[in-house]
Write a protein that binds this DNA or RNA. Structure first.
Lengths: 337, 337
DNA sequence: ATGAAAGCGCTAACAA
DNA sequence: TTGTTAGCGCTTTCAT
């Protein structure tokens, strides 16, 4: 069933059918009704390819993310896809893994699909080395690029992010105000937002005149699901390296869960002897007893804003190139502030 | 840059370029080389729409799932997308939520996109009432439908699932063998696989001659992230309804985590006084101390098999219509068997 | 081994 | 208000 069949049955030209299909004003109501009836009757659906060929768009957005099974990224994808769909766009998902090469490859794959835009979910897509980000510039030359949780200055690149720096700083300062003297910072990524969090932590110490010891910044290099690995890591830090701490600020909830298990295994009372702060405010923060205080970076708000911005760009509405949300610590039993 | 430009520059016809592009055998090596060079030089990429129009396929698979932010479904999507990409297919993601109507709508959306097949992730897509499944039959009339974790008998519908019945029965029997007398079954969904698990539990009791009390089958109706809700639910069961139990078998890990928190809050020793079994073997099973024994239903294997089957169907290779994997209990600290 | 040309189904510019 | 028609870029016969 094509537009030709419909036009024949309705006794009009294909142009008229097309007008009806696209809601053009220049159709006599009676004609419109006649055509609509035929369309309904035969359950005709226009061919998306042919339409795409003509318009050079299939109303499809590419979503690039390192790992759709990551709790945080999965949530982001969920919000973004939903919002895009509400705006009449499809979402092509492409998980790139954490390697540079496959990242570029995936991007090219999406571009060759003629997506109308590419959303990059997660701060992993922007590196420190400008050369490594060239692929973003290249892509931005053909379609608008939307960055979630990353900051990058380039024409046709739009950023929506959370002020991780400030959120981490605030949380750390709260711990200091509550009397913590030896705060360990536990992280696992050097991505853009990872660095911001770290800097926020350091700045909190600086502001409160607490000397910064290098050993109090620890990077866990294991897999992001390896909670017991984190526990062992902390055990090693304490038992073998002699590092002492009365609070742990982490860059991700799973690290905080690991810290929680470390405390439990060593019969360290939380929050009495050890306070723990997570990041992302995910379900993992609810899994332990007591529950973990975690920094919420307003993921849903960010995602909705990102899509809003994107739609603005695609419809040539004036839109801000950068939107920054502020995060906040959700206090639960793992801290007493 | 189109195929015409390339053909002109290479001094051949578009047909030849097309042949080169599609790896046809009927091209003289020298001609092929000549064309290839031009293609490389100009970085030409064929237009996916035009190709789609001709072939009536853009090598795209629709992935339907209720909620991409659900831990389990997110993992499934991850595996499936990856495997599809390796096979040269794109993935269009569409999250339907848990309502019937939006489910049908999403499916139609995908079909109107001319996807080559639709993968339905999760057992929610098949209902008890045959009428409610009619939409699957309808869709199967136009493209192959792949079901993950659901069983449905219909031409052009292919199922890949885990034997949840057996896995649950086995785990329950192990608990009985270990001396548990009062086993509570805690679930939260009546989906196809939800029913299988429940039936497996019941059958274990039957097999071991343990009387089945209705009150020992409890459905938690809250949100699947509401861990504290589960804890409170169990508190209520015990304190107000006077239900006693020495083991809890759950249909999802988050329920097991809730049970764990219930035990901790009430100073019930796990596994000594209460044994707990989760389902899905997700990261949640690792969050508590002790870690939770959980049934692994081999999600990755299932996903890879599903894609393998799909590729088979699309290439008209002979393929089984139903593949069943068997699950197994991964024992951790929450049980002593 | 290569080229010419007919679609594929739709949109949009132009004519009437 | 409606119809005619030229693309859109590619695949695929059918000739050569």
């Amino acid at each position: 069933m094509t537009i030709y069949d419909i036009s024949k049955k309705a006794g009009v030209s294909i142009a008229t059918v097309s007008r009806v299909l696209n809601g053009s004003a220049n159709v006599k109501p009676r004609t419109r009704k006649k055509v609509m009836d035929i369309i309904e009757q035969y359950g005709y659906k226009p061919n998306a390819f042919a339409r795409g060929l003509g318009l050079n768009s299939m109303k499809t957005i590419g979503i690039l993310c390192a790992d759709a099974s990551d709790l945080y990224l999965a949530k982001a994808i969920y919000y973004i896809e939903q919002s895009l769909r509400e705006n009449g766009y499809h979402s092509v998902l492409c998980c790139t893994g954490y390697e540079m090469e496959s990242r570029k490859e995936s991007l090219n794959l999406l571009l060759s699909q003629h997506v109308d835009s590419v959303v990059m979910v997660g701060s992993h897509f922007i590196m420190n080395n400008p050369e490594d980000n060239q692929y973003v510039n290249d892509a931005a030359a053909s379609v608008p690029i939307m960055l979630l949780n990353a900051d990058y200055d380039c024409p046709n690149v739009y950023c929506t992010l959370c002020d991780d720096y400030k959120a981490t700083q605030d949380a750390t300062e709260k711990l200091i105000a509550a009397g913590c003297k030896k705060i360990l910072y536990l992280y696992n990524s050097n991505s853009y937002s990872g660095q911001k969090k770290l800097a926020g932590f350091q700045n909190a110490l600086l502001t409160k005149d607490i000397p910064l010891k290098k050993e109090m910044l620890q990077c866990f290099h294991g897999n992001h699901e390896d909670i017991d690995g984190v526990k062992n890591f902390l055990n090693d830090l304490h038992d073998n390296k002699g590092i002492e701490f009365d609070a742990i600020v982490t860059s991700e909830d799973f690290l905080a869960v690991g810290a929680m298990k470390y405390a439990r295994a060593n019969k360290i009372s939380v929050p009495k002897s050890l306070q723990i702060v997570g990041y992302n405010n995910s379900i993992l923060a609810h899994c332990s007893e007591p529950a973990i205080s975690s920094i919420d970076n307003r993921l849903e708000d960010m995602c909705l804003q990102l899509v809003k911005t994107l739609i603005g760009v695609l419809t040539s509405t004036e839109t801000p190139q950068k939107t920054i949300f502020s995060g906040e610590l959700i206090e639960r039993g793992s801290t007493k502030l």
